[in-house]
Design a binder for these strands. Sequence first.
DNA 1: TTAGATTATGAGAGCGCTCTCTGAGAACGC
DNA 2: GCGTTCTCAGAGAGCGCTCTCATAATCTAA
Lengths: 356, 356
Amino acid sequence: MAQTLEQIAELAGVSRATVSRVINGGPYIRTEVRERVMRVIAENNFHPNAVARSLARRRTNAIGLLVPEPVARLFNDAYFPPLAEGVASACHDLDLYMALLTVNEPADPEARGHLYKRIFTSGYHDGIVMASSPRSDVVTKMMIDYGVTFVLAGRQLDYPDLPCVDVDNVGGARIAVDYLVSLGHSSIGTIAGPAYMSAGVDRLDGFRTAMAGHGLTVEPAHVVEGDFTEQSGFAAGLRMADKPPTALFVASDMMAAGAMRAFAARGLRVPDDVSILSFDGFPLSATTHPALTTITQPVAESGRRAVEMLIGLIDTLMPRGSSPAAEGENGAPRLVLPVALTVRESTCRRDTHLRR
Amino acid sequence: MAQTLEQIAELAGVSRATVSRVINGGPYIRTEVRERVMRVIAENNFHPNAVARSLARRRTNAIGLLVPEPVARLFNDAYFPPLAEGVASACHDLDLYMALLTVNEPADPEARGHLYKRIFTSGYHDGIVMASSPRSDVVTKMMIDYGVTFVLAGRQLDYPDLPCVDVDNVGGARIAVDYLVSLGHSSIGTIAGPAYMSAGVDRLDGFRTAMAGHGLTVEPAHVVEGDFTEQSGFAAGLRMADKPPTALFVASDMMAAGAMRAFAARGLRVPDDVSILSFDGFPLSATTHPALTTITQPVAESGRRAVEMLIGLIDTLMPRGSSPAAEGENGAPRLVLPVALTVRESTCRRDTHLRR
DNA sequence: TTAGATTATGAGAGCGCTCTCTGAGAACGC
DNA sequence: GCGTTCTCAGAGAGCGCTCTCATAATCTAA
């Protein structure tokens, strides 16, 4: 197994440059020469050294997908798999190498910083796609400080002007409220996401705005904050069970599942007593009983778009085969992907309600 | 922000070599010079280019953790998180960069091969830790063909002589049988893992051997094969429910959970009617009702050991700052980690059984 | 004092690629 | 016939590091 371009060149009786041209599809090569070189490459099972190539090109053609969460939590998250799927699929299409970057020591912020530092200064990636982190997490600031090129999947509350691909959380909440209103509901509550996550904030904002738009008031007791987990949904459901609204917009499928468990425990039927409309559209939402009406967000698509945006960023910052461009900071790119209503069994018309 | 060693050298009034020595902790540097250089490095927030370093050293100091499973399945797997945790922790200790390598297109074997090829020929990793794949998966052969340095977590059925870190599946099954026998059981069945996975094969082998060792026969109807999933455990439990053994060794926690669900559906009580002893010791095993008596395997530890073994392999194949060593193939290293019995509530003495 | 060891630094040759520059032929126009 | 323009290929200068080797300075030992 020959190891270098040089050796292949010698075997094929051409120069290093010619072999390089053949490999990279350069122009101006006689068919005969190209075929000879390709044959030698194949015979020797030669693969150019990616590290050397990266050094010469000043491009690794590799990107990282960073999830600022401990490994363990990452695997219990329904959001992450489709995101990884989307990122991986875009990388495949764009002939990019993708590495999943994780950080394990969640407890020790010192060690955590070191791990991030290693990632950000490694230079093994042209850029990074990061799932948005909670408010005031250090990781975003570190990326900025280290001059990493990156795109966020989801808005970052601390830095509104960062390149990101988000889903339309506000619009989704509006669609949810509109739909519930169209079913005849006017007593609508919400289990909101946490105030330290953009998805939590935006979905609540959208909810309030939409309610106001319909001239409806929201009872304070009908707004409970959770943290997107099943447990928090259960707790919130319990708190509302005594005097529930006729419809509930729940900011995540998991919390909706928890709320339904709480309602079931208190003898409330969904949707007969309370309609539930959740947000996410993860596989879970189709398997609950009843199956959830939900706002489906295109997670894989946002992963794909994030990669495309990232490549665009990298190309402008460092055009292929050229020196870095001037700081072209005319606003960070942002993309908001539409979400869609998926109607299932957890919602029904107000007039079929038996209570009140 | 200065970009190269050269620039730092100039700013500090020394040569490139000296800066390199300072960064890499080389000897023979006056304290005064070292401090001056370090100050300049800090002032300029300089980080050496890892790609250039890798090229010069012919070492990336990065390893990959490859899971030959589609991303989606990966996240529903209880085995993978602790493995990743262990690998990540060892990498942290050894100052290694770790990237999780995944492959998404499970369906199309062509595309899958391309993705693997990109990984194996990238040269971005000194070596790879791979969770063992099912029998006759192409990935192992590809790694061998591409000359990748790797260590398997778990045995590979197709290639018995590959470097690997395994847990003592055979011994674990023996411990299980011994314990059940010590409780007075003699009618013992098993729900085995799939025949295409080493863990499945070994646990079944261990079970049969141990039973024979006790002079006990196994009824053919009391040996059912599953595929480690809850569903397959449920199906197996259903098949055995009519004429169950008094004790059952189940090759995975998940299948045990499924079997218990099946038994519950058929009115069989665990452990009163059937004792269940599972294998894995994943968190799940502590939260079932009743909590599972199980053989706990040290998954994180095997991840850690795999990294250590991998580094050993890399060091012998390519000693630091030297040319590749002669093919020192005096047998691939293998390590078998001990497992331990965790007693919980799903097993009890035979004499407390009410049937028969 | 001088040889020899020890400590400290620089020069420079790579690592294995890419890519620009240069130039040799072939094709073409007038 | 002589520029001109293409087509094709090689020479060679990097990319930003590491590491060996040579050399200079300082410190022993006799």
